[in-house]
Each structure stands twice: as structure tokens, then as C-alpha cells.
Design a protein around this nucleic acid. Structure first.
Length: 663
DNA sequence: AGCACGCCGACT
DNA sequence: GTCGGCGTGCTC
């Protein structure tokens, strides 16, 4: 068809695994010069009349495909939205995760907004870029982080466990010290004429980071890119990244795929936070994407955190990451306290041991006190007043919770109010509160400390910042407000409950939650850890979280659990899962002893877990990938089971952070 | 996904 | 003889 010697290699925008490769298209005369790498195009697929959208990945000599070439239908827009770096990353990340490059590209490139794009093209993008001069990064020794950026090093950075005041114009804000360090490192990168990507797990972190950036960089040097933005805002930010000027690009999760120009630094905050795990296929954790991108683009990479994930610890032990700490060392004051009877009746009610009680009372004389609790609401669990069995919803068997003191107990699953409730075990009609959520703890503490202002902060009642005046701040883990000047004391309650959670990662999660709360204390202010001892407590007390991570990793090695090995969870119909497992066993891709399960997850749906060493990752991923394609192409509705949303009967997920939990 | 190709049962 | 059933396979 086409007479031109050059073909366009196009990635068709479809999440079908069998279409996840490049297709060659001829370039018609009238589109010569317009069809260039990175632009969105429309192409015919399979039959005339049917068109699909796609991206021109590259132009190549014709000859790779000896069939009749179709021609590009049209160029959707002249903007080169798929950069070579992002394409390489998408392909590599998707291969590693046994998924489609398309699915990654969907995270990387926002939906096109015609008006935004027109404005962008019309605007003169040659505005002189302001000269950035960066101040030194403090707390890490002279030019330690700056040099790491210049030498493109990979670091695991222990964050500064202090809060700091940042000032942008008239506005003054208190943020975590980590945000100041990350912002300063980003500024140092931009000052060298390179871009920096800063990736944080949640929006509270992002606000802190943006405040810290605003204090040291002009607004035109910073771009925000996150999923909470409106589509036009996100596309506008995305297009700014393509401009070529050095920028600080800050956002959550998928910011890791931003089309940064001349990338000099990738920095990630709190990599152990589960919000870094992408819930969309192919489920690539931003930590893994960051590691891949660093390798591809040879830039500096820094994982910042107060605690250390077992994943990062593994990379430190391998020598892939170098551990860096503040100098001089900053060690917060943490006091472990066993749960013990206190003399005070009210303290008992509020489940606070006497030493913690004394600490809180003394601290409240000159500042706010943070009380971290495990659960939100009033009563996290209700039981039958007669037989003491857990009270369950009469409609769906879900557990009952009570959100506030005065509210009617309701089902945690379906929301149904438990009016005229009857116990399914003994016919009892009385409900009994079990445990304390943030509100009930607040009530108890209010009685114990009359006259003190009480602030509750949880997922529903978000509080970002509080002033330095005395107050009791009851917060669920992860929702702690920042106190101006730092808290006068921190109480970590409910430790026992948190540790009892059923998860492979409880230990490191708890240490992360606690460490992040400890870091909100003022210099020298005490933290009391209630009811927890052992290795976890001593890691917190000595502020040596990496010691705990090392021991934990050694355990995982012994058990062959992640991250000592990688895992793939294979979920689907009984036959589909069995097919995949037997195919991989037959090909000797996986050893029989590394197949766990299958176990039932729901009627007719099973799950097997495969584990494999990192060195076998590529082989396992590609074998799983071909099984996925096979299942997708040979999938036909069994006779009888007609229509319905053709739910894929096979789902494969690599490196699930909680492979042993259902979901 | 869609859509064509292809190889067996009921029909003018 | 052939019209059309949907099982199977491919998409530059």
C-alpha cells in the first residue's frame, strides 16, 4: 500500500494482552512529517472501517513485517506525549509485572483535553526560565546529598525526625523535616539544570512537600501531578513537564511515570506505605517503578523514611542502595511502658498506664499532646450483652460498629442500622461496646483531663495542622496533624491491638506508624509506647528501625516469603488456575514446592501463590504473560453461561504486598 | 473486543 | 445442493 520506506511502529491503545506489542503502519504522503515518535494517532485495525487509537513509538525502516501494511489514518494531535524514556519504562515495568505496557501508559499519560492542549500549543513556551540557586541540604553533612545527586547515587535516607517551619511569603506552615530535605534535594537538582520527581503516598504528605517547595522555589519551577486533580489540571501539568525546562514534579504513585526532561533525581517518601502499591493492573508499586526508572535513566534515587521497609533493607544489604543518616544523629526520646494498673480510676478507663499519664499531664502544661489510637469511631466492635459473641448485622452478617457516642450501631459492611437487633446465637437484644475508637478515647481522656481542649483527627475528620497551645489530639494512625513547634509529648496507645493484626507486614507497618508519629514530637519531647515490648519496641526506642528490618528480612528468607523472594498470585476459575500452574510446572519455570495453594477465595474462584527468586523473575513473568494471552484468546463463554460482563476468569498479580490476605 | 474464516446440521 | 450455527484465530 504505502510506498514510503519508513514505517511507523504503533502501540495500539488497548488493554488486551494479545495486542500488547507494536504494529507497523505505512505513512501516507499527506501525513509525512506529522507522524513522528510520541504522537497520538488513529489507525485501522483488522478490518477497514474499524479504527483504534494508539501512540507512534518510533519510526523505523520498513521490513520488519512482511504482510500488507495498512496506513496511519490520522494524527490526533501534534504533541509528542509518549517520550522515549517513558515508553522504555512502561515496557520494562509491564514486562516485570507480567502486564501490558498500555496499562502503564494509561497511568503515565493523562486523557487528552483539547482546550488545554490548544492553549499550550498557542502559548509561547520559550519564556526564560528563572535561575535557581539552591541552599545547602541540611542535617546530612556538607554536600552529602548534593554529591549523591551529582554522582547519580542510589540512597536509603533516614529522614530527620523533627518538624520544621517553612515560610512562603506571608504564609508560614509546619511540615515534617523529611519534606524540607526532599524539597532541598529537588532544588539542588533543578539548580543543576535537571528535573526531579518527588513521589509521596498520600495527599497530606503532598501538601507538606508543596509547602516546603513553595518556600524555596518559584511556583513556575514546580509541577503537581496527581490523581486527585481535575482532568484539565492534570493534563496542563503533564504538558508543562514536556517543555524541556528543569522542573520539580511532585505527586503520588503514578508521578513516577511523569515525562520529566533531563531527569536528575527520583525521591520517594515512605516507600512502605501501602498507598505506593498501584491498585490498577499491572499493579506496579511506585518503589519498583522508581528502581527501574533509575536504572534506565541513570539518575540519582533516594528512598526517604523514618522506618525501613524490608524491601529497601534488602537492597541495602545487596549494596544496591547506600544507607545515609542525619549527622549528627538525631534520636527521639521514646519510653516503652508495659500496660500496668494505674492508681487513677480514670486513667484505667482510658487505658493509660500511670507513667504515660504523668508524662501527658506534665506536657499539657506547655503544649499539645498527641495520642495515637488504632481505630476511628466510638466503638470499633460490638458484642451481644448476654453471650458476648461478636454482634453481626442481621442483613449481611457484617460486624457492627458505633461511630459516635449518640449514634445507632450500624453494619460496617452494608451500613444498615442495627435497630431492634437480635443476637443470632442467643436471641439476646442488648448490645455491648467492645474496645475504644478515637471518639471514645477522646471522651475518656476528656474526663481524665478536665478543661483540656480535645481535638479528634481521623479519616473523616481531617486535621492537617494545629497550633502550639495545649490540647489533647486524638488521632488514628496516619491521620496525625502536625503541631506547630512539635508535640510536647506523644502517647502511642493500642500498640497491642495494632501488633495483633493479621498480616505478613504487621511488624514493619507498626514500626512505620509509630516512627512517623514520634517524628512529630518537639525536640527532646517524650514519646510513650504503651503495651509493646520486644524487638519492635527496642527498634523504636533506639531509633534503629533498620535493625528490625534486617531481622525481619532474615525471617522472611528462612520462610521464603517476600521480599526475600518474589511472589505471583494467580486468581481465577478452578480450571484456569490449575492450567497456569501446571503449564509453569511442565515448563520447569516453577518448582512444585514453590506452589502454595490453591485455596478458595469465593465460590468457584481459587487462588494459587507462586514464589520465585529474583533471578528467575524474567522467566516467570514471561511464562505467566503467555498463559494470560492464551487464556484471553481461547476464552469462550461456556454453553449455557450467556453474556454478562465478560469478567476475565484469570487474574495474575506479581509482588502483591499482602499476597496471603484475601481481597 | 470485534470480526472473518471455516467446517457440520436443517432447509427451499 | 447452500444457509447459517458459532468454535477458533488474528489484528500491522
Amino acid at each position: 500500500m504505502s510506498t514510503s520506506a519508513v514505517v511507523a511502529r504503533v502501540l495500539v491503545d488497548s488493554s488486551l494482552p494479545q495486542l500488547d506489542r507494536l504494529f507497523d503502519y505505512g505513512i501516507p504522503e499527506n501525513l509525512l512529517g506529522q507522524v513522528i515518535a510520541g504522537v497520538r494517532v488513529k489507525v485501522p485495525l483488522r478490518s477497514a472501517g474499524r479504527t483504534a487509537e494508539g501512540y507512534v513509538v518510533e519510526l523505523a525502516e520498513a521490513g520488519g513485517y512482511d504482510g500488507v501494511l495498512s496506513e496511519i489514518d490520522s494524527v490526533i494531535s501534534p504533541v509528542r506525549v509518549l517520550t522515549p524514556e517513558v515508553w522504555a519504562l512502561a515496557r520494562k515495568a509491564s514486562e516485570r509485572a507480567a502486564g501490558s505496557a498500555n496499562d502503564i501508559i494509561r497511568l503515565a499519560i493523562p486523557s487528552r483535553q483539547v482546550r488545554v492542549e490548544k492553549a499550550y500549543i498557542a502559548a509561547d513556551n520559550n519564556a526564560p526560565f528563572p535561575v535557581i540557586t539552591a541552599a545547602a541540604v541540611e542535617h546530612y553533612g556538607p554536600r552529602v546529598l548534593e554529591t549523591a545527586i551529582e554522582l547519580r547515587e542510589r540512597l536509603a535516607v533516614n529522614a530527620v525526625p523533627l518538624v520544621a517551619e517553612v515560610r512562603a511569603g506571608e504564609v508560614s506552615t509546619w511540615v515534617g523535616g523529611w519534606a524540607v530535605t526532599m524539597a532541598a534535594a529537588a532544588a539542588a537538582t533543578v539548580a543543576r539544570g535537571q528535573s526531579a520527581i518527588l513521589c509521596v503516598p498520600d495527599y497530606r504528605d503532598q501538601e507538606q512537600l508543596e509547602s516546603a517547595l513553595a518556600a524555596i522555589l518559584p511556583p513556575e519551577a514546580v509541577v503537581r501531578l496527581d490523581a486527585k486533580q481535575s482532568n484539565p489540571d492534570r493534563y496542563r501539568g503533564f504538558l508543562r513537564c514536556l517543555d524541556g525546562a528543569p522542573l520539580v514534579i511532585v505527586g503520588n504513585r503514578s508521578v513516577i511515570y511523569a515525562p520529566a526532561s533531563n531527569l536528575g533525581l527520583i525521591a520517594l517518601w515512605d516507600d512502605g506505605d501501602p498507598l505506593h502499591a498501584e491498585p490498577l493492573s499491572p499493579y506496579v508499586n511506585s518503589r519498583d517503578a522508581a528502581l527501574l526508572r533509575q536504572e534506565l535513566q541513570d539518575c540519582a534515587l533516594m528512598f526517604f523514611g523514618h522506618s525501613r521497609s524490608t524491601e529497601v533493607e534488602r537492597l541495602v544489604e545487596l549494596g544496591w542502595l547506600r544507607s545515609v543518616s542525619p549527622t549528627p544523629v538525631i534520636s527521639p526520646k521514646v519510653i516503652p511502658t508495659a500496660q500496668q494498673a494505674s492508681g487513677d480510676r480514670l486513667a484505667v478507663q482510658a487505658r493509660i498506664p500511670s507513667s504515660a499519664w504523668q508524662t501527658a499531664r506534665k506536657a499539657l502544661e506547655h503544649g499539645p499532646v498527641l495520642v495515637q489510637v488504632a481505630r476511628p469511631g466510638y466503638a470499633p466492635r460490638l458484642a451481644c450483652g448476654d453471650c458476648r459473641q461478636t454482634a453481626r448485622c442481621m442483613r449481611c452478617e457484617g460486624p457492627l460498629v458505633q461511630k459516635s457516642q449518640s449514634s445507632v450501631p450500624a453494619c460496617a459492611w452494608c451500613g444498615a442500622l442495627a435497630v431492634s437487633w437480635r443476637c443470632s446465637h442467643c436471641e439476646g437484644e442488648k448490645l455491648r461496646l467492645v474496645g475504644s475508637g478515637a471518639s471514645r478515647t477522646a471522651e475518656d481522656l476528656g474526663r481524665a483531663f478536665p478543661g483540656v481542649r480535645i481535638i479528634i483527627a481521623d479519616g473523616e475528620r481531617q486535621v492537617l495542622e494545629i497550633c502550639h497551645e495545649p490540647a489533647l489530639v486524638i488521632a488514628t494512625r496516619g491521620a496525625e496533624p502536625i503541631a506547630a513547634g512539635g508535640y510536647a509529648a506523644v502517647l502511642l496507645l493500642d500498640g497491642e491491638q495494632m501488633v495483633a493484626r493479621e498480616s505478613l507486614r504487621v511488624g514493619e507497618d507498626c514500626l512505620r506508624w509509630w516512627s512517623n508519629a514520634v517524628a512529630l514530637a518537639a525536640v527532646g519531647a517524650p514519646t510513650v509506647l504503651v503495651g509493646v515490648g520486644g524487638a519492635l519496641a527496642s527498634a523504636l526506642v533506639t531509633w534503629q528501625q533498620s535493625h528490625y528490618a534486617r531481622a525481619e528480612l532474615a525471617d522472611r528468607r528462612r520462610l521464603r516469603f517476600p521480599p526475600a523472594v518474589r511472589v505471583a498470585t494467580v486468581t481465577g476459575s478452578v480450571e484456569a488456575v490449575a492450567k497456569v500452574v501446571s503449564a509453569l510446572s511442565l515448563e520447569n519455570v516453577i518448582e512444585p514446592e514453590d506452589v502454595l495453594g490453591p485455596v478458595d477465595v469465593s465460590p468457584g474462584v481459587e487462588r494459587s501463590i507462586l514464589r520465585f527468586d529474583y533471578g528467575r523473575g524474567a522467566v516467570v513473568a514471561s511464562a505467566l504473560r503467555s498463559q494470560l494471552i492464551k487464556a484471553a484468546t481461547s476464552r469462550r463463554r461456556p454453553p449455557g453461561a450467556q453474556r454478562g460482563p465478560s469478567a476475565p476468569n484469570l487474574k495474575i498479580r506479581l509482588d502483591d504486598v499482602e499476597p496471603f490476605l484475601e481481597s
